[in-house]
Amino acid sequence: QTVHVKGVQYHFPNPEEAVKFALKVAKDLGGRVEFHGDEIHVE
């Protein structure tokens, strides 16, 4: 599972961890989380 944050990719073997990370980052940055297939983008 890959999380993209402002052009940087973070790889997580566990999808659940990836989602938790993405939600935390989005909250910290005041952004939103978008799901694109296997990828999660924080915009």
Score class of each variant (00 low, 15 high):
Gln1His: 14
Gln1Pro: 09
Gln1Ala: 14
Gln1Asn: 13
Gln1Glu: 04
Gln1Gly: 09
Gln1Asp: 04
Gln1Lys: 14
Gln1Thr: 15
Gln1Ser: 14
Thr2His: 06
Thr2Asp: 03
Thr2Ala: 05
Thr2Trp: 10
Thr2Phe: 07
Val3Lys: 00
Val3His: 01
Val3Asn: 00
His4Ala: 05
His4Gly: 02
His4Cys: 15
His4Tyr: 14
His4Met: 12
His4Trp: 15
Val5Tyr: 09
Val5Ile: 12
Val5His: 05
Val5Gln: 01
Lys6Trp: 12
Lys6Ala: 13
Lys6Asn: 15
Lys6Arg: 12
Lys6Asp: 14
Gly7Tyr: 03
Gly7Met: 04
Gly7Ala: 04
Gly7Glu: 05
Val8Phe: 09
Val8Asn: 08
Val8Met: 11
Val8Gly: 04
Val8Asp: 05
Val8Ala: 08
Val8Cys: 14
Val8Ile: 12
Gln9Met: 13
Tyr10Arg: 03
Tyr10Trp: 06
His11Arg: 09
His11Gly: 04
His11Ile: 08
His11Met: 08
His11Tyr: 14
His11Thr: 08
His11Leu: 08
His11Ala: 06
Phe12Gly: 00
Phe12Ile: 01
Phe12Met: 02
Pro13Thr: 13
Pro13Arg: 11
Pro13Ser: 13
Pro13Gln: 12
Pro13Lys: 13
Pro13Trp: 11
Asn14Lys: 05
Asn14Asp: 10
Asn14Gln: 04
Pro15Cys: 15
Pro15Val: 14
Pro15Ile: 15
Pro15Asn: 12
Pro15Gly: 10
Pro15Tyr: 15
Glu16Gly: 08
Glu16Pro: 04
Glu16Met: 09
Glu16Ser: 09
Glu16Thr: 09
Glu17Asn: 05
Glu17Lys: 05
Glu17Gln: 09
Ala18Arg: 00
Ala18Ile: 01
Ala18Leu: 02
Ala18Asp: 02
Val19Gly: 03
Val19Thr: 07
Val19Lys: 10
Lys20Gly: 04
Lys20Ser: 08
Lys20Ile: 09
Lys20Glu: 12
Phe21Ala: 04
Phe21Lys: 03
Phe21Met: 03
Phe21Leu: 02
Phe21Gln: 03
Ala22Tyr: 02
Ala22Ile: 03
Ala22Pro: 03
Ala22Leu: 03
Ala22Asn: 00
Ala22Gln: 00
Leu23Asp: 12
Leu23Lys: 12
Leu23His: 13
Leu23Tyr: 14
Lys24Pro: 00
Lys24Phe: 05
Lys24Leu: 10
Lys24Asp: 10
Val25Ser: 05
Val25Gly: 00
Val25Glu: 05
Val25Ala: 09
Ala26Pro: 00
Ala26Lys: 02
Ala26Tyr: 02
Ala26Asp: 00
Ala26Met: 04
Lys27Pro: 01
Lys27Gly: 09
Lys27Phe: 11
Asp28Gln: 14
Asp28Ala: 14
Asp28Met: 14
Leu29Glu: 05
Leu29Thr: 13
Leu29Cys: 14
Leu29Gly: 05
Leu29Gln: 07
Leu29Pro: 00
Leu29Lys: 04
Gly30Leu: 06
Gly30Trp: 06
Gly30Val: 04
Gly30Arg: 07
Gly30Ser: 06
Gly30Lys: 08
Gly31Asp: 03
Gly31Trp: 14
Gly31Ile: 06
Gly31Ser: 05
Gly31Asn: 03
Gly31Cys: 13
Arg32Ala: 06
Arg32Cys: 14
Arg32Glu: 05
Arg32Phe: 12
Val33Lys: 00
Val33Thr: 02
Val33Met: 07
Val33Gly: 01
Val33Asn: 01
Val33Pro: 02
Val33Asp: 00
Glu34Ser: 12
Glu34Cys: 15
Glu34Arg: 13
Phe35Tyr: 11
Phe35Trp: 12
Phe35Ala: 03
Phe35Lys: 06
Phe35Gly: 02
Phe35Asn: 04
Phe35Leu: 08
His36Gln: 08
His36Gly: 04
His36Thr: 06
Gly37Gln: 07
Gly37Asp: 09
Gly37Ser: 06
Gly37Ala: 07
Gly37Tyr: 06
Asp38Arg: 11
Asp38Ser: 12
Asp38His: 10
Asp38Glu: 10
Asp38Trp: 09
Glu39Ser: 10
Glu39Gly: 14
Glu39Lys: 06
Glu39Val: 11
Glu39Trp: 07
Ile40Glu: 00
Ile40Arg: 01
Ile40Lys: 01
Ile40His: 01
Ile40Gly: 01
Ile40Asp: 00
Ile40Tyr: 04
His41Arg: 10
His41Pro: 00
His41Asn: 05
His41Thr: 07
His41Ile: 10
His41Tyr: 14
Val42Arg: 01
Val42Phe: 03
Glu43Leu: 15
Glu43Val: 15
